[in-house]
């Protein structure tokens, strides 16, 4: 059964931003293009534009976050919106009923947008399906499903360093199974035309049938790195040592940690990315995280521009091009 893509409105414009899946190449290009001028705004002494003046944006975080919450908040403020941050312990809303009750209460306060982070896959879709029609929902990470704004800031960062998406070899390393970032990155990369996306990790951290998403699976890090243009390291959660997924951090680092020696297999101009926060010495050597090929801090900066682009598009106040 074919269902409507709820992320777009009747005119095919961005309404909710829940997952990369469901967007065409041009949609993603529009977001990247819209972010360019915002990236420039941030270089200026006065970093504010009045695009979302009078709008109220609620950061609804059911899961702790510093980086994502902060960049969404900054992005909203730089668009002149009013921002409300709500941190909710998931336990308080373990029943869907109370989650919906809470949303209705917020709606009654005439909010325009919910930025949602939740530990359950599909939470952002669920909320988007149940809010009033005037409200936009942006997924700031749902369980292991999607983190589309993170993927878009990564695409933005890649585009600033590399010419053509189509020619790139991109390697994503680590815990693909539990990573919403990886899933969104894979969709974004393949949608933008990257033909060679490689995912690397032990079988315990690679989801079944992941090849269906258009990627190549490697268990050996070195062979995956050969000829790579972009290397994306994923964060390894400490709790993966439980539940028999991995023997130890030390063994993981030996096999899948990015060291100088391993990096030498990639192209000399390869860039190294990480969605943060970094576990130094678990996923990546400090010398690389802080080295010349790392674009990790640039990702954070670009995160603000991308989120400004997505928010203003979803609230219909921006045009894909030409913001001075």
């Amino acid at each position: 059964m074919i269902r409507k893509n709820i992320q777009l409105d009747e005119q095919g414009r961005l309404k909710h931003f829940l997952s990369i899946e469901g967007f065409k190449r041009q949609h993603l290009i529009n977001i990247l293009d819209a972010a360019e001028p915002f990236a420039n705004v941030q270089q200026q002494a006065i970093k504010k534009v009045p695009l979302l003046r009078g709008k109220t944006i609620v950061n609804l975080f059911f899961e702790p976050s510093t980086r994502t919450l902060t960049t969404f908040e900054l992005a909203a403020k730089r668009l002149s919106a009013d921002v409300l941050n709500i941190n909710i312990k998931t336990s308080a809303t373990s029943k869907g009923e109370s989650l919906l009750d809470m949303l209705q209460n917020l709606e009654a306060m005439h909010c325009d947008m919910f930025i949602v982070r939740h530990s359950q896959s599909g939470a952002a879709h669920f909320i988007a399906q149940h809010v009033s029609p005037h409200i936009s929902v942006i997924n700031a990470g749902d369980g292991c499903h999607a983190h589309p704004s993170q993927a878009m800031l990564d695409m933005f960062t890649i585009r600033r360093h590399k010419k053509e998406f189509a020619d790139l070899k991109v390697v994503i390393v680590g815990d693909i199974l539990h990573s919403r970032v990886a899933r969104s990155q894979i969709h974004a990369l393949t949608t933008l035309g990257v033909t060679e996306v490689r995912v690397v990790g032990p079988k315990t951290l690679i989801p079944v049938d992941v090849e269906n998403l258009g990627v190549h699976v490697y268990h050996d890090f070195q062979s995956a790195l050969i000829g790579a243009d972009v290397i994306i390291m994923l964060r390894l959660q400490k709790e993966r040592m439980q539940g028999a997924l991995l023997p130890s951090e030390a063994e993981y680092y030996r096999q899948y940690g990015l060291t100088e020696e391993k990096l030498s297999y990639a192209k000399p101009d390869a860039i190294v990315m990480h969605p943060g926060p970094i576990n130094r010495g678990v996923e990546i050597a400090s010398s690389i995280a802080d080295g010349s090929q790392s674009v990790i801090l640039e990702q954070v900066t670009n995160g603000i521009a991308i989120r400004m682009a997505v928010m203003s598009q979803a609230l219909g106040t921006v045009q894909t091009k030409g913001i001075s």
Binding site: S121, G143, R180, V208, L213
Partner: peptide
């Protein structure tokens, strides 16, 4: 557990 569980990021039952 299969391509849909992988796509949606939901824990699968093989």
């Amino acid at each position: 557990e299969g391509k849909i569980s992988t796509r949606l990021g939901l824990t699968g039952i093989p």
